Simulated assay, not measured.
Amino acid sequence: MSKALKLGIKLLIITAVSALVLAFTNSITEPIIKEADQEKLNESLKVAFPEANNFEEVKGNFPASIVGVYKADGDKGYVFDIISKGGYGGDIEFILGVDSDNKITGFSPLKHSESAGFGLQMEEDWFKEGVKGVSMDNKVGASQSGSENEIVGISGATLSTTSIVNGINTAREVLESIK
């Protein structure tokens, strides 16, 4: 037997054993990872809709920016996982809760790369509170003081605010289609 053939057989055996070990490890860890991911998601959903205890995923043909839709405790409302394009630092992913009266119950940013001086303010309580209670009966906008159909905008962070408003309005369209 040639030296190259022996080496090839040894590499085949090592590769096969490695693949089996990885497959076994994956079969053990996969359920644990899924459970941890589900717990993390439920915690995020509760931030956006604190009055709900259970969330059921709603299936549908949603726009690409809607990562997930979850029904809160039967008919209490919905929670949307949204990735909105157009932020200053790129896409902004956030969770948005909406009650049965179409009022926003909570906002929680998940992932973004917004600037520390301006766009990062979306993580501050004053901004989150300025989103709560906004009605999604009509198209949502933004202003300095907020109103029934306007969130409180972030001064100096027009792109971040616009991205969030666009995501909210996409969720509004989806809300109309699933109610």
Rank of each mutant, 00 (worst) to 15 (best):
K3F: 13
L5S: 11
L5A: 11
L7P: 07
L7M: 13
L7W: 15
L11F: 15
I13R: 02
A16L: 04
V21A: 09
V21G: 07
A23Y: 15
E30D: 14
I33M: 07
K34G: 00
A36K: 14
D37Y: 13
K40S: 14
N42C: 09
S44N: 15
L45M: 08
K46M: 04
K46F: 00
V47L: 14
V47G: 11
E51I: 10
N54M: 09
N54A: 10
N54L: 11
F55A: 04
E56V: 15
V58F: 09
G60L: 07
F62K: 09
P63G: 03
P63V: 01
I66H: 09
V69C: 06
V69A: 06
V69R: 06
Y70V: 00
K71C: 00
A72L: 09
A72H: 03
D73V: 02
G74N: 00
D75S: 11
K76M: 12
K76D: 07
K76Q: 12
G77P: 01
V79E: 06
F80H: 00
I82M: 01
I83C: 07
K85F: 04
K85C: 05
G87Y: 02
G87I: 13
Y88Q: 05
G90I: 15
G90S: 10
D91K: 11
D91R: 12
D91L: 10
I92A: 02
E93W: 05
F94P: 06
F94Q: 03
L96Q: 02
D99S: 01
S100A: 11
N102Q: 07
N102W: 13
K103L: 09
K103A: 02
I104R: 01
T105L: 00
G106L: 05
P109F: 04
P109Q: 02
P109R: 06
L110E: 13
E114R: 02
S115P: 05
S115D: 12
A116G: 08
G117S: 07
G117Q: 02
F118D: 10
F118A: 14
L120Q: 14
Q121N: 13
E123K: 08
E123Y: 14
E124D: 12
D125M: 09
D125V: 12
W126S: 06
F127T: 07
F127R: 03
K128T: 10
E129K: 15
V131G: 00
K132Q: 06
K132L: 08
K132V: 15
G133I: 15
M136T: 11
M136N: 01
M136S: 08
V140S: 10
V140H: 01
G141K: 09
S143V: 00
E150S: 08
V152R: 08
G153K: 10
G153Q: 10
I154M: 02
S155N: 06
S155P: 07
G156T: 05
G156E: 09
A157P: 03
T158H: 08
L159S: 11
S160Q: 08
T162C: 06
S163A: 15
S163G: 14
I164W: 00
G167Q: 00
T170H: 04
T170R: 05
R172A: 03
V174W: 06
V174K: 03
L175E: 05
E176F: 15
S177I: 04
S177E: 12
I178L: 07
K179H: 09
